[in-house]
Amino acid sequence: MIKALGYFIEIIRGIVITSRHFFVNMFFHILKVLGIKTKRKGAVTIQYPEQKKEIAARHRSLHRLMAREDGKPRCVACMLCVTVCPSECIYVEAAEDPDLEMQKYPSKFIIDIGRCCFCGFCVEACPEDAIRMDSGEIDFAGYTRDDLVYDLDKLLR
């Protein structure tokens, strides 16, 4: 009997909690409709495409290749990122650079975003600080798999 009473009290408490949420949130929704600005909002939702949450400073977003002053990529095609990549999504083809100081440059640099797991190891491995994941782009979905294969033109910005 005591146990049943305990259940009953908990049932009442449950409905008090949900209805409290309902009425408090409705109160703030109505204030918003009436045009009264309040600090608290009726919902915690961020209406995504129109309203974007600020990306954290260390967030790993879409890769980009850094360029030197003359517009060529900083990359020297050392293949460290290709080696470290756990998803094996980076493909680099080296070519000889006429500049004796550089010796090599990437004639092809392809990242298959569809395979990338955004671990950031390539960024850690790069000795030239040529690849970064700070572009801030997070919506790069594509209609086909080929849309997700990014080459040098797309990465070098």
Partner: peptide
């Protein structure tokens, strides 16, 4: 809508 308001959604 009601479930959303109960759960602090829209």
């Amino acid at each position: 809508k009601e479930s959303a308001v109960i759960q602090d959604r829209i």
